[in-house]
Design a protein around this nucleic acid. Structure first.
Length: 909
DNA sequence: ATCACGCATGGAT
DNA sequence: CATCCATGCGTGA
């Protein structure tokens, strides 16, 4: 394979027929260009409106003639066209004959642990009954053919595996040192036990490592989907429809070729080196490192062209083949899924290289705070380091030459230190490089090998986003909701695009890929490396911070707490915010507070009472407040001009979308994004949308990408400080968080006091009448829903509150505190600086509140779509060295900060 | 006082 | 429970 890389090529064992290759070669765009049915066994002309068949690599659907389409849809395709092809097997349960060797049939069966296959019907049945299918038949997700292939992209390749969601294993590559290997085209650094021969893979035997287990299928599929999966024909006799192509937008498309073709990739239909000795896995795994070697029984391989040796073990128990010292002696080399490379085309494009370059993605790592800290040590995942970097026996390690995406050479010290009978590998001296690439915690660095030459290449993906202008472009070019603000949710489309300074080595590449479809990686912020949106949820979420905030509508009868520290206001709700429909709050002619909501269907704006909370999908039909306007056909009361006045102008993209009365693609996508967010919340069972993390119980010290006060700082608190006027997501998040924290604390305290008081009263005054409650308003706002929103400002000037808030600091703030866990925290003993900070902050806050409240509520027309950011920013009056408090709060001061207060019945807006 | 180094710790998996 | 790894921290330059 002399062309540019075709990594992540998943081959079935056999080379496709040339004919099919040709067809596949022309798939990008040609699927529809040709007038002939895509089915190579059919030479019929397509009708004018050909029916879509299976999905091609390009993301398009194969266009079939009526006959083939009919067969396809009726699941008779294989019966008709592959009858004489090999790959037919019988269902172990019902005996039904099932074709197992082509793209069309790939979802028609599932693999059994004990070998053999099961037709999907039986698999479904058995799964329901708790069958022994080794993997949840992907097919179970498919209710219809039309959905099947859609799901390829939507759910990743587990579906493919669905035919045998046999996890693929990434076979760490034997480091071949920096010296180029003579054999430039031996391939196989990767193995994917993806398919076929599938029954030959005794899954249960092989998948011994936890993350290869079923529960990890998400990762599996996720990773799979990150390759330009090319599923070749199972059988050489198969016809061309054997190629399944991962939809590009979900694939990492590790090819630099603009028109990857099976023809080109054929040579790469190499058999993977399964890293498993032939004796393993029941001896059924063909082992081959020779490409172009047909092996009808081999497993589907995902292989990269490279000259690297392989070395991996199967199911984590592989033998090391390189003889390289394995300090741990375990021979385990399974990489954690989070390190599996998820290269995008853009990633590849970053990598300098000529047209003959072959890029072998090795691994990637999300940068931690310490990675990007001053120390300049990039912690390497042990297995990655051992797999892909030269073996080192001395802690001093050796210098490693790495090329960045600009082609710039860096030399890092690759070394390790002993740690718990193991090793901890680090790259030292990465600071200049990190800075050069303008990377920060949360960004992802990718390591690849460039062939020929074996050069180590370090690329990156920015976790967060791009400049405003770029976002504008994205707003236009992509289908997201607006992209203003820097809080876009892990939008991979922006990956690699961030650094216009040249980090994208496009210049270095002569050829450019056509605009690729967006791929996604569900990585979310901080916890991203562990928390990923399931592939099925891979809907682009492009929301600005404000938009996201706007979606988090409090129930109308819920009030927010407000806390200010060092002039930063924080508000939070006792309960999880509700993902509601963004609306526009306004005041009508009579001075009455109202809100405008846009119908999901007709996009007309409807006037509603100000205190109603709408579901994320709200339509005119749900307009119970104005029957006359409860039909989409009803006219819109709001004029465009009025609407323009109401809509936020800081975000043109969002503005246009919201303004648009007609449904256009943008709207659809925007709504899809919102819906996705809403759905996420729903899926979260009502819990607050995890801004950055979800699964963990405790906050780690520093999480990359996390915007909590802890994580926004580099480990030593030495990084750049946020300015007091900073309105970045992080700062705003911090502010919010603070406010919430304080208020919750306040509330809890007041509740406790109330309780205490009550008890005392009951004990000592049980003869008295009870209407002498000394704390009449305590807890009123929480105990009984406040039916109407009250402005924070209006209530915060409660002098009682002022007094109590300033006087009751008992300890420190645990900035990672989770409100619901507060009870578990004990009051801290060490107050010191933090105490003073808080006191100061609170005082300032209270002063401020007085000022604000006296100046009246000017926010009556603030929109929910960007409700908090602006006002909070305005209220920032005091500088806070976030880093300073952060550091201590993180670990040294885990204790409690409490405020005594009474009756915080206020709500924000 | 600062920094770099390298080990230790502990949360997460 | 073992392991990984992020990062804290002691120590010495």
């Amino acid at each position: 394979m002399k062309r540019k890389s075709l990594e992540f090529t998943y081959g079935f064992f056999e080379v496709l027929k040339k004919e099919s290759n040709n067809r596949m070669t022309s798939t990008s765009g040609a699927a529809s260009a040709s007038k002939i049915c895509f089915n190579s066994d059919c030479n019929h002309l397509k009708s004018e409106r050909p029916t879509k068949g299976w999905r091609l690599r390009t993301g398009e659907l194969a266009e079939l003639c009526d006959r083939c389409a009919s067969a396809f849809e009726e699941r008779r395709f294989c019966d008709v066209f592959h009858l004489n092809a090999s790959g037919w097997r019988n269902c172990e349960s019902c005996g039904k004959r099932v074709h197992c060797g082509c793209i069309v049939s790939v979802h028609e069966f599932t693999l059994l642990d004990a070998g053999g296959i099961e037709c999907i019907a039986c698999a479904r049945k058995n799964v329901v009954l708790g069958s022994n299918t080794s993997w949840p038949p992907s097919l179970l997700f498919h209710s219809s053919l039309s959905e099947r292939f859609k799901d390829y992209s939507a759910k990743g390749w587990s579906q493919l595996g669905g035919s045998g969601p046999v996890p693929w294993r990434q076979a760490p590559i034997l480091f071949n040192s920096l010296t180029p290997q003579p054999e430039l085209h031996s391939r196989v650094p990767y193995e994917v036990d993806l398919y076929t021969g599938m029954d030959r893979l005794n899954v249960s035997n092989r998948l011994s490592t936890p993350y290869l287990e079923m529960k990890k299928i998400d990762d599996f599929s996720e990773s799979l989907m990150n390759g330009t999966l090319k599923l070749g024909a199972h059988d050489i006799h198969e016809n061309g429809d054997a190629g399944i192509h991962c939809e590009e937008r979900h694939s990492s498309c590790l090819t630099k070729s603009q028109q990857p073709s099976l023809k080109e990739s054929n040579p790469s239909f190499v058999l993977a080196v399964p890293y498993t000795s032939p004796d393993e896995a029941n001896g059924q795994i063909g082992v081959s490192s020779t490409h172009l070697q047909p092996n009808p029984q081999s497993s589907l391989v995902k292989q990269f062209p490279s000259n690297l040796h392989n070395r991996l073990d199967s199911s984590g128990e592989t033998q090391v083949r390189d003889g390289r010292p394995r300090p741990d002696g375990r021979g385990r080399n399974q990489l954690f899924p989070r390190y599996w490379p998820r290269f995008t085309e853009q990633d590849l494009q970053q990598i300098p290289g000529d047209s003959n370059s072959v890029i072998t993605p090795l691994f990637e790592k999300m940068l931690s705070a310490s990675d990007t800290g001053r120390i300049g040590r990039l912690v390497l995942p042990k297995k990655c380091a051992e797999a892909y970097f030269p073996p080192i026996s001395q802690p001093e390690g050796l210098p490693l030459e790495v090329q960045d995406s600009k082609g710039k050479e860096w030399i890092f010290q690759f070394r390790f230190w002993p740690n718990n009978n193991s090793r901890m590998y680090v790259l030292e001296g990465v600071t200049p490089c990190i800075q050069n690439m303008q990377l920060q915690a949360g960004d992802v660095v990718t390591f690849s090998r460039l062939e020929p030459g074996g050069k180590l290449v370090m690329g990156f993906r920015k976790a967060s986003t791009a400049s405003a202008s770029e976002q504008d472009n994205e707003a236009k070019n992509s289908s997201g909701v607006s992209t203003h603000g820097d809080a876009k949710v892990a939008d991979p489309s922006s990956w690699s695009k961030v650094d216009k300074s040249g980090c994208i080595a496009k210049e270095a590449l002569g050829t450019k890929l056509a605009v690729s479809r967006k791929r996604k990686d569900g990585t979310l912020g901080s916890k991203g490396k562990h928390l990923r949106i399931d592939n099925e949820d891979l809907i682009v979420l492009k929301l600005t911070w404000e938009e996201a905030q706007g979606l988090l509508c409090p129930p109308p009868n819920h009030v927010a707490g407000v806390v200010v520290i060092e002039g930063f206001e924080f508000e939070e709700y006792e309960d999880a915010p509700v993902l509601g429909k963004p609306t526009l709050l306004a005041t009508d002619n009579l001075g009455e507070n109202i809100q405008w909501a846009q119908c999901e269907d007709c996009f007309k704006w409807r006037r509603l009472p100000s205190n109603v909370l709408l579901p994320s999908k709200w339509t005119c039909s749900s307009n119970s407040w104005d029957p006359e306007k409860s039909f989409c056909s009803a006219s819109q009361e709001l004029t465009t001009e009025q609407l323009e006045n109401l809509l936020p102008h800081c975000n043109p993209a969002a503005f246009n979308k919201m303004k648009a009365p007609k449904q256009g693609p943008e709207n659809v996508d925007a709504l899809a994004g919102l819906d996705a967010l809403a759905n996420l919340a729903i899926l979260g069972e009502g819990k607050a949308l995890p801004a950055s993390s979800q699964a963990t119980t405790k906050h780690p010290r520093h999480r990359p990408g996390c915007s909590c006060i802890v994580c926004i700082q580099p480990p030593s608190g030495k990084g750049p400080k946020h300015k007091e006027t900073c309105t970045c997501n992080v700062c705003q998040s911090v502010k919010r968080r603070f406010r919430t924290l304080m208020l919750q604390r306040e509330k809890k305290q007041s509740q406790k006091e109330e309780e205490t008081t009550r008890k005392k009263q009951q004990l000592s005054l049980h003869d008295k009448v009870l209407d002498d409650d000394p704390l009449p308003c305590t807890n009123a706002g929480y105990g009984s829903p406040n039916p109407k929103k009250v402005t924070t400002e209006g209530s915060d000037d409660d002098p009682n509150r002022v007094k109590s808030s300033t006087s009751t600091f008992k300890g420190q703030i645990d900035l990672n505190i989770q409100p619901e866990r507060e009870e578990e925290l004990s009051p801290g003993s060490d107050s010191g600086i933090t105490m003073r900070l808080l006191q100061d902050a609170t005082e300032r806050y209270l002063r401020q509140q007085c000022i604000l409240s006296s100046s009246g509520n000017s926010n009556s027309e603030v929109t929910q779509t960007q409700p908090r950011g602006g006002t909070e920013g305005e209220k920032i009056t005091t500088s806070v060295n976030l880093g300073a408090s952060n550091q201590h709060a993180d670990r040294d001061h885990p204790a409690v900060f409490s405020i005594k207060t009474s009756a915080p019945t206020s709500a924000t807006r």
